[in-house]
């Protein structure tokens, strides 16, 4: 436990001495402020064109940022040899991985908190009508994206040998999950029997963090009816508090599962040298 906290603290310290973190912080702030300026004429509430486009823009930026910062942090351990050094100490691999995850999440969530804080503060000052529930849902949306994509980032970092490899894999995962997702699914599901399409689609949605978080927030913003009668019961269910619990449970499962996988990879690397 103490090891884990130590690793997390080291990670936070390194994270905020990393110019990458600040460049992403600046990018995120510039971005959230531009959104605010674009929408200063409109009311930001519920699911509308304004919030829909904000969701999409965040969906482009945050996963990419998380994948880069997360995977680079792990490959750096390998490249700079600090993991080799740490391996000689009596520190558990699990403490190391969980510590890394916690430290990185704090760094990333701080960046998100800074961006949203600035956005909320300025919108309050200039008097944009920004509904508090919508603002809160946006923060939840961004935190969910960060936490889930961070598990993917750790996987990428564990499997890559160096930063270049991590960069390439990160970009392809980002493209696959955020942009190519419907195209790939529509073409693949087209080959399946018609009755399979919906269940397979729902199952696959649970393994794509970008879609999972996006749909959860769209439904919570009151836009669930647009998904049509096909998903009526899902929507009814997610709109209630049971939906939030399900969402939290899925996120925890996601995080737990991928931390175990990452742990296995590192543990094997440790014993095999």
């Amino acid at each position: 436990m103490a090891d884990m906290i130590q690793v997390a603290r080291r990670e936070i310290k390194m994270g905020f001495r990393n110019p990458w973190a600040y460049s992403f912080l600046l990018l995120f702030c510039a971005f959230s402020l531009s959104l605010l300026v674009i929408n200063s004429q409109h009311i930001v509430q519920g699911y509308s064109g304004v919030t829909g486009s904000m969701l999409n823009l965040i969906l482009y930026l945050l996963p990419l940022m998380t994948l880069f910062l997360g995977s680079f942090s792990l490959t750096a351990e390998k490249e700079e040899g600090s993991w080799q050094l740490l391996s000689t100490y009596p520190i558990g691999t699990l403490s190391f991985i969980v510590g890394k995850y916690i430290g990185l999440s704090i760094v990333l969530l701080t960046i998100v908190a800074f961006g949203y804080g600035l956005m909320g503060f300025i919108s309050g000052l200039i008097g944009t009508s920004f509904d508090a529930t919508t603002y809160f849902l946006f923060i939840v949306f961004s935190c969910g994206l960060v936490l889930l994509f961070l598990t993917l980032a750790l996987l990428v970092g564990s499997l890559s040998k160096n930063r270049w490899q991590a960069l390439t894999v990160s970009v392809s995962i980002w493209f696959f999950a955020v942009i190519g997702w419907p195209t790939i699914l529509i073409s693949a599901l087209g080959l399946m029997p018609y009755v399979w399409i919906k269940p397979v689609l729902v199952a696959l949605t649970f393994i794509n963090p970008a879609e999972l978080v996006r749909l959860f927030v769209v439904i919570k913003l009151g836009g669930g009816s647009i998904l049509g009668p096909e998903y009526y019961q899902w929507v009814q269910w997610i709109q209630r508090s049971s939906g939030s619990w399900l969402f939290t449970a899925v996120c925890v499962l996601w995080i737990g599962f991928s931390i175990i996988v990452v742990y296995r990879i590192w543990e094997r690397g440790r014993s095999h040298g």
């Binding site: 701080t110 804080g117 919108s123 000052l125 944009t128 603002y135």
Partner: peptide, 19 residues
């Protein structure tokens, strides 16, 4: 929803200070 913007201001300030 004008009244909501005060809440957003306070939450925003809090988040900013935390960060």
């Amino acid at each position: 929803s004008k009244k909501g913007s005060d809440d957003v201001l306070i939450i925003g300030l809090f988040l900013l200070c935390c960060a």
